[in-house]
Amino acid sequence: MKFLSNVQTTHKVFAALVLAVLYALPIFITSPVMLQIFILIFLYAYLTSSWNFVGGFAGVLPLGHSAFVGLGAYTSTLLYLTYNISPWIGMIAGGIVAAAFGLLIGLPTLKLRGAYFALATIAFAEGLRVLVENVEKLGPFEVRGPKGLLINLVGNSFKDFQFLSKVPYYYIILTMLVLVLILTFFMMRSKVGYYLAAGGEEPEAAEALGIKVSKYKLIAMAISCFLTALGGTFYAQLVLYFYPKSIMGLDMSYEIAFIALIGGRSTIMGPVLGAFLLRPVGELTRIYLGDTLPGLHLIIFGLVLIIVMRYQPRGLVEPVSRWLNILFDRIEKRRRA
């Protein structure tokens, strides 16, 4: 956050460089597996950045965001399967549905503090999952309960949001991630951002100053849910098959929150850093250790969580931005000299 807040030339150059490398990456990496790993890293960075609007800036801890991932996925897919509406349009519809649910659930819960809010969001997400599992048919839509939805393979088609190669998915999610980061950047500098920052730390004090914290928290919640749902549609189109437990399960909700806390919540780069640490740890330990001793990879994952929190309770963004600042200062000095 710090290294982007006072944007110097070096920082700009660095950011442009990183972006250029990321956009050029598919030229060098052709393995679909590596691309898939990157796509999932970006997806989780995207979901966590969306989460950050409410989990970071509004100062509460939502632990049920997979509900909104699921709402996005289900809305766009049901529209596509029933009326053949392009998932690109369905994506926006899913976002609106999720934002509406976000407001509905946020209205009573956002005034709760800490653990109460966290547990309320868990209950909401689990309740919604159970609800979807119990619904076979909703009006014209075949929800298919626990059996889930399968999107038929139609081959490369932009309109159908389906590609045989991983490269288009890579660019779509990377662009979505960049856009959400830019949005975060501007939000932090907007009135809403300042009010939220004030309200997140000292809600009573902010209220006393006449800031309607709850109103801005609701706005943040709606934005967050909207964005999260877009990620849900992307996820659905990427895997083409999902069911309530796979897309609205608590595991995903937890993982989003872990990434934010490990990376550093209420910072712009925290979710990205967190995703770049936790996703590969999860994937690589599973790939290389998953078949040796059952569960060993999850033990390591758990240990990583404990160790990072033990030594960097504010997340990795602090030490990383410190190193970067030292690096930039040196470059700056050399340039002047």
């Binding site: 660095f14 950011a15 990183v18 990496i29 590596m34 790993i37 780069m269 990205v272 850093l273 770049f276 640490l277 590969p280 690589l284 990795l316 990383v320 190193w323 970067l324």
Partner: peptide, 12 residues
């Protein structure tokens, strides 16, 4: 962001 620099080569 520079964590990527370490992780990518490591993974490759």
């Amino acid at each position: 962001m520079n964590l990527k620099k370490f992780i990518v080569p490591a993974m490759v």
